[in-house]
């Protein structure tokens, strides 16, 4: 396989990067400025249509929807980021260890991942939050468990391929222990795969957080959350349908951006993809 001489930035990377930066920027901005206080209740101004004063209207308690969306970005990103961090912290070491020491430990990691994959992710999350009680922290754990399984499996697969390569065997022969070889040779070579997978899991985590919050199991009020805004708006679907459109669109934009970013990163890091031409 010959690498192309020069590669330009993949378009999906650019588009995804811009969308993701936009969402992150809005989330950061909400820390210092929102048009209104997002948790400020004004019952008499409830369910206002979009207009001057409230660019996206108000919700059923008279809260400013734009401000809530901005603050909601922060909460959605925070939960998703934490869930990915949990996945990375648990899944990557497990995957690396499993690949470094084939045997029952390896088998246990593989079976453990199989076990988690055997349950539909939504169901796992519902069961876990039923066990732990609803809340942001528990949503992080429920989504993080799924992420850990995915990352463990992906890391293990990629690391095993690296272990088969000559230079790693040579390093082992030269007296490096499996731990050292993992840190020096394996981890840098699987980092790309992990970054791509983590980006896509970030997007999935946002969708899962939205689903949990929609069911009332995620971020708890009064902190605004996209999923709960959608759940709340659903009861006003026939009077204020736009209320259901805005948070749904916000979720879609964030997920779209992250997915494009993940695809772009993969194109960048794995030249086999995206370089194809139909003859």
């Amino acid at each position: 396989m010959t690498a192309p001489p020069r590669r330009s930035w993949p378009p999906s990377l650019v588009a995804g990067g811009v969308l993701t930066l936009l969402v992150v920027a809005v989330a950061l901005l909400s820390l210092v400025w929102t048009p209104h206080e997002p948790e400020r209740v004004r019952v008499l101004a409830r369910l206002r249509p979009p207009g001057p004063g409230h660019w996206l209207g108000t919700d059923h308690f008279g809260r400013d929807v734009l401000s809530m969306l901005m603050a909601g970005a922060r909460h959605s990103l925070a939960v998703a980021a934490a869930a990915v961090a949990v996945g990375l912290a648990v899944g990557v070491p497990l995957g690396l260890a499993a690949a470094a020491r084939p045997g029952w430990g390896d088998e246990a990691v593989a079976r453990g991942a199989d076990l988690l994959f055997a349950f539909p992710a939504v169901l796992t999350a519902i069961l876990l939050t039923a066990l732990l009680g609803p809340g942001a922290l528990n949503a992080v754990l429920a989504i993080g468990a799924f992420n850990a399984a995915v990352l463990a499996r992906v890391t293990r697969g990629a690391a095993r391929q690296v272990w088969r390569r000559e230079f790693v065997r040579a390093a082992l022969a030269l007296g490096r222990g499996p731990g050292g070889a993992t840190l020096v040779h394996v981890l840098p070579n699987v980092a790309g795969v992990i970054v791509v997978q983590a980006t896509i899991l970030f997007a999935v985590a946002i969708l899962n957080e939205a689903a949990l919050s929609y069911l009332g199991l995620g971020v708890q009020p009064p902190a605004p959350s996209w999923g709960r805004m959608l759940g709340d708006a659903q009861t006003h679907l026939f009077t204020s349908p736009l209320q259901a459109v805005f948070p749904g669109a916000a979720i879609a934009v964030a997920v779209l951006g992250l997915n494009l970013l993940g695809d772009g990163l993969r194109d960048l890091l794995d030249p086999r993809h995206g370089a194809a031409r139909v003859t």
């Binding site: 708890q220 009020p221 009064p222």
Partner: peptide
């Protein structure tokens, strides 16, 4: 779970915060 409880609770939490009672809401089944 009933919608009246969830809605009233969320609103009351905001009102109590106004007088200094910091309420953390917990939805339960």
């Amino acid at each position: 779970p009933p919608i009246y409880a969830r809605r009233s609770g969320e609103l009351i939490a905001a009102m109590l915060a106004d007088v200094g009672v910091r309420v953390s809401v917990e939805n339960t089944e």
